[in-house]
């Protein structure tokens, strides 16, 4: 799985190479976001300001993703998503870029 982190051993030494290898190699559809429920909502809401790479290099808990979404709105000039959409995006992020993914 791309973006997964080595936690032990040579994490720092090897990580750069591993992640660099995985950083591209995506189709241009949805900026390389994996398919699944919420892909469209996430792409639509999250790529106006930055690319998907800022998302795909992360592995966050639900709480941290929740904080990020709030931070985007409160500090980074993002619009408020309708709460239903926000939930779909949050679920998508945790599913694909959660601590275990």
């Amino acid at each position: 799985m791309r973006g997964r982190k080595l936690r032990t051993g040579l994490a720092c030494a090897c990580l750069g190479l591993m992640m660099a290898g995985g950083a591209s190699g995506q189709t241009s559809d949805f900026g390389g976001l994996p398919a699944g429920p919420g892909q469209l909502e996430t792409f639509g809401n999250c790529t106006a300001c930055h690319s998907t790479m800022i998302i795909t290099q992360q592995n966050f808990s639900r709480r941290t993703w929740d904080e990020v979404l709030t931070w985007m709105v409160e500090d980074q000039g993002m619009w408020e998503m309708p709460s239903e959409t926000r939930q779909i995006v949050l679920d998508y992020l945790v599913t694909h870029f959660g601590p275990e993914s």
Binding site: R7, M19, Q57, Q58, F60
Partner: peptide, 18 residues
């Protein structure tokens, strides 16, 4: 720099050493 080494993963660019 070195953020990628922390667990759980903190927010931001996952810099290794460079």
């Amino acid at each position: 720099n070195g953020r990628a080494g922390f667990n759980p993963s903190p927010r931001g660019n996952q810099w290794a050493i460079g």
